[in-house]
């Protein structure tokens, strides 16, 4: 049995909005745990556009996606949030009452949380691997087609076709090559986005005849009962050939899918969670939704809107966590108690 983690506030999603909520909650003495399916912090900003400039964060004429996340991490450091990365929140159930809410939250890694309040800052949903649009691929998934390597042993003595040109494709090519019967790397062009030293290593394995590199794209799969036997590929010179293989690992990047949020008993409108604009609370008291995932009249999917939403939600969270305490409005500029919390007084 894993130990249940108890917390005042549980934030689902470590994107910019979830991160800034830690700050607003922290000023109100509310400690947070955050969960994200990605192995890293920062949501869309870090995953989709780390190097690109953002021009509409108030007070920052320009900041990159990763730069904003780094700054937010520095800003919330005094509040010591706990991150649980690389795991997806699967279930969220109410075990309290409307007056004293309590929620049980579990992840696909087996972690169990008991939270007085839950803030869903899930953006466009969980980041999940993109599936190639190959007819019938569903039948093979989890049996001979995988989008991630959980257990290396599954791949021992197999003929593995790995598709892609980024770090995931190259890293797994190099890691699996020693234990596989044969590794075949396929990419649409002879240029790779992956780290140059991995590309060099791959090229020398190819030169030594220890693996194959094919330029082309998978067009169809052949096999029976989910067991892959060959992939039909269109090579760069437009010829079509069958490549025998019994494992396929496609690495086409990530896309956002709503995922299990749909099963949590919350009202949904077109895959978004409707909230009020006073507290950003959902139809379930004690569960809030902030950032890209929520919907209300006039909603803008902007980072700055998400920051505002977190600040207002925090006020109501405070009432659930400290029902007997009165909340004073204070400025960080002048309040000595806020400054003590921030570690600057």
């Amino acid at each position: 049995m894993t130990e249940t983690i108890k917390t005042d506030a549980l934030i689902i999603g470590a994107g910019p909005v979830g991160l800034f909520a830690v700050f607003e909650l922290g000023l109100l003495d509310i400690k947070c745990h955050l969960i994200d399916i990605l192995p890293k912090i920062g949501g869309q900003c870090a995953e989709l556009y780390p190097e690109k400039p953002i021009y509409d964060i108030p007070g920052f004429p320009v900041v990159t996606g990763q730069g904003l996340i780094d700054n937010l991490m520095k800003q919330i450091e005094p509040f010591g949030p706990t991150f649980h990365l690389g795991q997806m929140v699967e279930s969220l159930e109410s075990i309290g009452s409307a007056q004293a809410p309590l929620f049980r939250v579990t992840t696909d890694a087996g972690a169990v949380f008991e939270a007085k309040t839950v803030l869903i800052a899930a953006g466009g949903g969980s980041f999940q691997p993109k599936k190639p649009p190959i007819a019938g691929i569903d039948d093979y998934e989890g049996k001979s087609v995988f989008y991630a390597v959980r257990k290396m042993e599954e791949f021992r003595d197999r003929t593995i076709l790995i598709v892609g040109g980024g770090d995931s494709a190259l890293d797994w090519t190099l890691n699996l090559q020693p234990i596989a019967k044969r590794v075949i790397l396929m990419h649409r062009r002879d240029e790779f986005r992956a780290a140059p030293h991995s590309v060099d290593q791959m090229r020398s394995l190819v030169a030594d005849g220890k693996m194959d590199l094919i330029l082309g794209q998978v067009m169809a799969l052949k096999g029976e009962h989910g067991q892959l036997e060959a992939a039909t590929i269109r090579a760069a010179d437009n010829t079509t050939i069958d490549v025998a293989c019994d494992r396929l690992l496609p690495f086409f990047g990530l896309t956002m899918k709503l995922g299990p949020i749909a099963d949590w008993g919350l009202n949904l409108a077109e895959n978004l969670i409707p909230v009020d604009t006073e507290k950003f609370e959902t139809n379930v008291p004690g569960i809030f939704a902030i950032g890209d995932i929520n919907a209300y009249p006039g909603k803008l999917k902007l980072i700055l809107s998400g920051f505002h939403e977190g600040a207002l939600a925090a006020q109501k969270v405070h009432r659930y966590v400290y029902p007997e305490k009165r909340l004073l409005f204070q400025y960080t500029t002048s309040s000595s108690s806020l400054q003590k919390k921030l570690g600057v007084a």
């Binding site: 993109k130 190639p132 649009p133 892609g164 040109g165 980024g166 990419h187 649409r188 062009r189 240029e191 986005r193 794209q217 067009m219 086409f252 990047g253």
Partner: peptide, 11 residues
């Protein structure tokens, strides 16, 4: 653009 095209299908 070339790098991002790697994520498209039937390129």
């Amino acid at each position: 653009e070339e790098d991002m095209l790697d994520f498209a299908f039937d390129v």
